[in-house]
Design a protein around this nucleic acid. Structure first.
Lengths: 89, 89
DNA sequence: TTAATCAATCGAAACTTTCGAATATATAAA
DNA sequence: TTTATATATTCGAAAGTTTCGATTGATTAA
């Protein structure tokens, strides 16, 4: 993994709300429904949307639309590549 | 490791210059002399000092003063704890 | 249709980060 | 001592991030 992508992922991880989202996902089969997020992080809906976008742009999660609802799934590959990258920096 | 410390370390890792410093250290027995840093990242001296401070505050590196010179050493423990923390988030 | 719901986008305010210029401090050399 | 060198600190400006209300678009239900 390029250093530039490590930087991008690290930036995405550098926020307590986004870490809480990811922690929740890890504890729930790598998934979370957008509607649940309000219970996990106590922020207004546009703020949640903003954090989701950061995580998506970093390649850490992937959105799946199901009707009106969104399901977000952890991208285990990106996650492992990041761990690998910093382990062997 | 607390989520708050994970956040702090991730923030410290979320900058290409700091990643370059850490990468260099990993490739050189976990050490770097302050004087070398100018060659690794092409920034003014106060900026280098600023980045070193961020890494120090995150607990990722430790300064050792030797006369006029500084030697920075990787804190392998913090590093491993961070890897561990995100691996098992 | 119309109304309700979920989520993205916009725009503005508050806050944080980044970096260089100037200044300060510490050590060493002359 | 005086001077030079290495590093830190402080300050201010520019850029970037976070937050949230208002708006918008998409989907579903009535």
């Amino acid at each position: 993994m390029e250093l530039k992508q490590v930087e991008k992922i690290a930036k995405a991880l550098g926020d307590i709300n986004r870490l809480k989202i990811l922690q929740y996902m890890h504890q729930h089969d790598g998934r979370v429904e957008c509607m649940e997020l309000g219970n996990i992080i106590n922020l207004a809906q546009p703020s949640i949307s903003h954090h989701i976008k950061k995580l998506t742009e970093a390649g850490l999660i992937e959105p799946q639309k199901d009707g009106r609802y969104y399901l977000y799934t952890l991208n285990q590959t990106t996650w492992q590549e990041y761990v690998q990258a910093i382990q062997t920096l």
